[in-house]
Write a protein that binds this DNA or RNA. Sequence first.
DNA 1: ACAAAAAATTGATCCAAATCATTTTTTAAA
DNA 2: TTTAAAAAATGATTTGGATCAATTTTTTGT
Lengths: 248, 248
Amino acid sequence: MKEVKSSFHVSCKNCGLQKVCFPTGLNREDVERLDNIVDRRPPLKKGVHLFQAGDSFNALFAIRAGVIKLYSFTDNGEEIVHGFYLPGDVLGIDALGSRMHQYNAMALDTTSVCTLPFEKLNELSENIPNLSQQILNVISKEVLDGRMHSELLIRRNADQRVAQFIYNMSERHRHRGYAGSEFRLSILHRDVAVYLGLTPETVSRILAKFHADEIVTWKKKEVFIHNMHRLQDVIGMHHECEKQTIDR
Amino acid sequence: MKEVKSSFHVSCKNCGLQKVCFPTGLNREDVERLDNIVDRRPPLKKGVHLFQAGDSFNALFAIRAGVIKLYSFTDNGEEIVHGFYLPGDVLGIDALGSRMHQYNAMALDTTSVCTLPFEKLNELSENIPNLSQQILNVISKEVLDGRMHSELLIRRNADQRVAQFIYNMSERHRHRGYAGSEFRLSILHRDVAVYLGLTPETVSRILAKFHADEIVTWKKKEVFIHNMHRLQDVIGMHHECEKQTIDR
DNA sequence: ACAAAAAATTGATCCAAATCATTTTTTAAA
DNA sequence: TTTAAAAAATGATTTGGATCAATTTTTTGT
């Protein structure tokens, strides 16, 4: 509580997420123009919804801090977790066609978001060519992430899924300038299990094994990767080409 | 071979797919403007690629006739099938961000496509507001289809997956004005198995069962749905609300 | 700080779908 | 049309992860 929240601090041009978030590829001037349309509201408390299925769509959201779970339910009430959104990620793409949100977005921890009113964003993008490309990038990322998720579900066994999930989270933290081998992760094992198409029991057993094998420890929201090399081995990665596989 | 292929016949405004394809929601005049930028080439023979991973992107493709399989490979060479594209479907969304195709698109049968040069499409969409919304619809559909695929992989058993696949194909044919209970499907069981995250043996056994139970017969590229009601029962659908679940 | 609820862990058992093996059918090529 | 190759079908066996059940740990709300 030491930091005073000044309006100066909360703007795109001073935001540490520029390289990950929307402003990527925009020049100083254009970032400022983007900044002007961004709406910032008080943080969401844990468990609060940013939007829910059926809500009308009028803005995209960029996560500033925290985590958001995007989820829905099957016809028979089983939960489906589509992804986890970290700072810099953009949420709301699913509603672009129907102008209505298709899924539920819930804060898993205290979460700040930047609201990007879609109409204003569109107007702005007519004058900033890089911005419309940036919108396409964000959309494309959403499609590609979905495909990676399917690949994981089709072709990986339980060990590999859990290992891949942790590895991806590590990479995403690393891209955001944090340590990739030690980070806080406010996601329930239960939610990870649903996301990976496994049961909580299976995830728990695998994490116990990874802990015993001194590969990864994940206890009380804190992840420690003790041996990145062996984690990659579990996934079946080739070490020479550490190609990045971003995931949710 | 009775029909003479005139250039008159091959245009958006006379195309039977208007309601399914890109022109949805455009007025007569705008369809004509769209028509002018569309490039039509001779059909692709079975086994030929429309594009491959790594190819540079410069156009979206709308399928006019035939089927396209969108697929890739995992690091260890296993195939992943992302979807099957039927007449009216739009292909190439995955490349919008990187301007480079991420997957392989192969004709599973003789296939005609309409090429929509992306730059021209963008220019046009500045003057036709409905068109830019239509682009968003197509993109959004791609995201949503991917999520439906994940849901299938996570929450459905083998019987349900096969049943859902056949049901979705039936619906897609019905939307295109064909009979929903009897249609030709030029897709190998093997490819369906890969798409559904199953083995060919499992798919074969399930089809044998569906045949014996007089629910569905799929032999030699021809599908007959004998009992739609029971097919829906396998999926676990509620009959009263026949909500449509489009799939690839 | 304490009580109640939720989440995670751990063990025992079971089953759906994979794998392995072979035969039959279909498709493509000569 | 014949032949070779690919795909599909069918049977026997195995197994990874689900399910069921009970305990321990962590979180939450008062």
